[in-house]
Simulated scan of single mutants.
Amino acid sequence: MTEYERSRTMPALPEQVFDQASNVGQLDSWLPEDLHVHAGDLPAVTVHEDRTDEDTPALLRARPDQMRLEWGTREQGGYTGWLQVAGIGSGASEVTVHLSFFDESHDPGEQAVSGALDSSLQRLEEQVRLRVDNAAG
C-alpha cells in the first residue's frame, strides 16, 4: 500500500471550505483536471479519467458533522481517499487530503500524485476565495 498526504491553509471558515469541497456539482472545479465525477444515486458516483479514458465506479460520502469527505473505488477496492477540513482560528482553515493506493496499478507515482494534490488544493483555495469574496461583496 502506498499513501500520500498534503495540507494547505485557506483563509476561510471551515464550514465555507467544506461546503465548497463537498459540492458534488463543482468537484471538477478543484479535482485533478483529468478526473471528472458524475454523481449517480449518492454515495455512488462514476469517475472518468481522461488519461486512460476509463470510467470507474466509486463511492463518495460527505460527513458534514465531521467536515470530512471520503471516497474510493467500489469494485476493485484499489484506492481510497479523504479530505478533512479543520478550523485553525482567525477565520482560517487547514485542509488535508490523504490518498491510499492498495493496488499498485492504480498508483500513478509520487511525482504525479504530489503534483495533483498540490494543484487540487490550490484550485480548491481559489474556488473558496471566489465564494467568500462573492458572499462579502
Rank of each mutant, 00 (worst) to 15 (best):
A86N: 12
A62Y: 03
Q66D: 13
A116S: 14
R63M: 14
Q122F: 07
L31M: 15
G87F: 09
E126Q: 13
G109A: 06
P14E: 15
R63Y: 14
E75W: 03
E15D: 15
M1D: 08
E5M: 13
D41I: 12
L130V: 05
P32Q: 07
P14Y: 06
E110Y: 03
E104Q: 11
W30P: 07
V85C: 15
L27Q: 13
A62C: 10
F18Q: 12
E70N: 02
S100E: 10
A44N: 14
G137M: 11
V97L: 07
E49H: 12
D107T: 04
M1P: 10
G81N: 02
S100C: 02
A21E: 05
D50G: 04
S105G: 02
V97P: 00
S90P: 00
E125G: 04
L60Q: 07
H38I: 08
L35Y: 06
G77T: 05
D103Y: 02
V97W: 14
L121I: 02
D65M: 06
T73C: 06
T46Y: 03
H106Q: 11
R131A: 14
G40W: 07
D41R: 15
A135W: 09
W30T: 10
L83H: 03
W30A: 02
L117P: 10
R74N: 07
P43V: 13
A21M: 13
A116K: 04
V37G: 08
R131T: 13
A135V: 01
G137Y: 13
V24Y: 10
H48I: 00
V95I: 09
L13M: 12
L13C: 05
S119T: 14
G109H: 03
R68S: 11
Q16W: 00
F18A: 11
H98M: 03
G137C: 08
D65C: 00
Q26W: 00
P64E: 06
Q16H: 15
L83N: 04
A86W: 01
R63V: 09
E49V: 12
R131V: 07
G109Q: 04
L42T: 11
S29N: 14
Q122M: 08
E110N: 08
N23V: 03
D50C: 01
H38S: 11
Q84M: 06
G87R: 06
V37K: 13
R63L: 15
G91W: 02
T73Y: 08
H98Q: 10
T9Q: 14
G78P: 11
S100V: 14
L83W: 00
E3Q: 15
G91E: 03
Q84G: 00
E5K: 15
G109M: 04
